[in-house]
């Protein structure tokens, strides 16, 4: 269980998070959405322990984040960040094995099995001896996902354990650069993990992916939570217009279990405030 209470954070004089309130339960797949600069990634990184100068309180399973040592944090949560830049020619298997670093002091019975399992689950087992920098962007993203999975798991099978109250997974735009098949697979994996009790928080840009997989959606605007709740209530044309500045229609189709968000291209163009501003001259 994660409780973010009154968290504010600023870089220099620029406030990025303002009195942020957020609660998430184990086993939930939460999706953070918002326009660029709304504070999604910063919130995720603060929860990941990157910024120590936040005000307010972040409780992870009842423990204040400030008081948790780095390795204890690493055994409870895994993070997939954007823009990883690994230049050293480590092999794919070596990169995934780095995920086990936090467990180096404890018994390492399953390390090898977990790494192999993660490689297979993300369909990068065939690439395991390839040098990481030679992979394509999407393949690299899958390898990183496998590494993060290896950090999260405590047994070489997804369904072997119940992780309720033990594990949290933070994903910052996890599907960027992946082809459509692997986007679906990656998010299905996130759903599977959430069913095993893992608390998953993901930053996504794609309404369709969010609608299909999220149990709870948070809309962020100007460093605050603007709206939160199940997909059906949060993904409304009104909220989307306020948070993203685009006009959309939310459609329902009998073949589709979730709402479809469609942008009204023409309307968006002509009602955009930028265009009005230029027209004023």
């Amino acid at each position: 269980m994660l409780v973010v209470k009154d968290v504010s954070l600023s870089f220099g004089n620029v406030p990025v998070l303002a009195q942020m309130q957020l609660q998430a339960q184990p086993g939930e797949l939460c999706v953070l959405m918002g326009a660029n600069g709304a504070g999604k990634s910063t919130l995720l990184r603060t929860i990941a322990g990157e910024y120590k100068h936040y005000r307010g309180s972040i409780l992870l399973n009842g423990q204040e984040l400030h008081h948790m040592p780095v390795d204890a944090q690493a055994r409870q949560r895994a993070v997939l960040s954007q823009q990883l830049n690994l230049q050293m020619p480590f092999t794919v298997a070596e990169v995934v094995a780095m995920g086990r670093y936090a467990y180096r002091a404890s018994e390492r019975l399953y390390d090898k099995e977990i790494v192999t399992y993660a490689l297979k689950l993300l369909q990068v087992y065939d690439l395991k001896d390839r040098s990481y920098p030679t992979l394509s962007g999407g393949q690299q993203q899958r390898v990183q996902m496998a590494r993060v999975l290896a950090q999260l798991l405590e047994a070489p099978a997804l369904h072997a354990m119940d992780y309720t109250g033990k594990k949290m997974l933070l994903l910052d735009e996890p599907v960027t650069g992946m082809d459509i098949l692997h986007q679906q697979l990656a998010l299905q994996l996130a759903v599977q993990l959430s069913r095993q009790g893992v608390l998953v928080i993901a930053v996504l840009h794609d309404f369709q992916l969010a609608a299909a997989y999220a149990q709870r959606v948070f809309f962020l605007k100007n460093g605050r939570v603007y709206a939160q709740g199940p997909v059906a209530t949060v993904l409304s044309p009104l909220h989307i217009r306020h948070c993203f500045g685009v006009d959309v229609s939310v459609l329902h189709h009998s073949l589709c279990a979730y709402p479809l968000v469609v942008t009204n291209t023409a309307a968006t163009l002509f009602s955009s405030s930028a265009l009005q501003a230029t027209n004023a001259y």
């Binding site: 960040s81 830049n85 480590f90 070596e94 990169v95 670093y101 180096r104």
Partner: peptide
């Protein structure tokens, strides 16, 4: 071991427990 993980980047190393 820590230096290997550090190759991923400072933030990632921290996330991994370094």
């Amino acid at each position: 071991p820590a230096l290997n993980v550090f190759a991923l980047g400072e933030q990632e190393a921290m996330h991994s427990g370094v």
